[in-house]
């Protein structure tokens, strides 16, 4: 397969004219995923930013088939589309469910699990901007420790969100899924390659892509890609794959850039104390120790 990058990727667009914020990482992920998947794609998106900005009658942002699903139902509707197409003998299509962090890790978790259990031939793209952005930046199950959101305020008593981020990648892998990967819009070539691999996979694929949100995170719109890189470079996010029952780290930095630089660039973390940051670093180090020990064989 030709390596997908800025030179090899075609100029066709299948997702444009939407009303997402300037600098939106999520729409960047969708645009590129759709370019890899092509015109015969059927997309299913639940309530969330991407549905809200793309289906405003009469202006539709997808040039391919696409539909909004009930919030909890991304996996199920995508499954149903794929089953319907298969039953009708319509070949050469790709069905993709695209949901945010809340739509994936919280309300849509059960339907996603059902779809993977059936091993339906769909791709599930989880676009993770670490909170319910569409409704105004509320905490989700993928909001990391210490995040200020509108439902996890930071103050004298709490540092913002006190939960750990659910480990969706390994939860999905534990189903024995055909293919799963993490990605970041900061490393687009890696993301494109993973979407292409998911497209080639028979059965269910899951890609969890990290997508910064200037509106929800509080940073200038032009920094989306650099923050998406910084999350990976500081070790707070990671690029990995699960395939044929085995995990693989795609990027294993010898050293990490400072966590504080990544955190302090965003207003959602600006309140964090030295102690909070040390705690975040310790959690990062423990996570990497585990991944290196268990996945690097």
């Amino acid at each position: 397969m030709v390596k997908l990058n800025a030179k090899t990727l075609h100029n066709e667009e299948y997702f444009y004219g939407h009303k997402a914020c300037g600098g939106c990482g999520e729409s960047l992920a969708l645009r590129h995923a759709m370019k890899v998947l092509g015109p015969n794609t059927f997309a299913a998106l639940p309530a969330g930013c991407m549905a809200a900005v793309s289906f405003i009658y009469p202006n539709m942002a997808f040039t391919t088939n696409a539909m909004i699903t009930p919030f909890a139902a991304t996996g199920a509707v995508a499954s149903g589309i794929a089953a319907g197409l298969e039953a009708l003998g319509i070949d050469g299509t790709q069905t993709i469910g695209i949901a945010g962090d809340g739509g994936t890790a919280d309300i849509g978790f059960q339907a996603l699990s059902g779809a993977i259990d059936r091993n339906d031939d769909i791709i599930y793209l989880a676009t993770d901007n670490e909170a319910y952005m569409n409704t105004g930046i509320q905490k989700s199950g993928l909001t990391p420790y210490g995040t200020r959101t509108t439902t996890s305020p930071a103050g004298k008593n709490l540092p913002g969100s006190v939960n750990q981020k659910k480990n969706m990648f390994e939860i999905v892998a534990a189903h024995g899924i055909a293919y799963a990967a993490t990605a970041s819009v900061g490393y687009l070539e890696d993301f494109l390659a993973k979407v292409a691999k998911a497209k080639e996979t028979r059965g269910t694929s899951y890609i969890h892509v990290f997508v910064p949100c200037p509106t929800g995170w509080g940073y200038p719109a032009h920094k989306t890609v650099s923050l998406a890189k910084a999350a990976v470079d500081s070790g707070l996010w990671y690029l990995a794959e699960y395939e044929k029952g085995a995990f693989k780290l795609n990027r294993n930095p010898g050293s990490f850039t400072p966590v504080a630089d990544y955190l302090k660039a965003q207003s959602r973390f600006r309140h964090l104390t030295e102690e909070d940051i040390s705690r975040i670093e310790a959690a990062r180090d423990a996570k990497w120790e585990n991944m290196r020990r268990q996945w690097q064989g």
Binding site: A44, V77, G80, I81, G84, L88
Partner: peptide
């Protein structure tokens, strides 16, 4: 809903 939306 998904199946019906493609005409099945």
């Amino acid at each position: 809903i998904g199946a019906s939306s493609v005409g099945a």
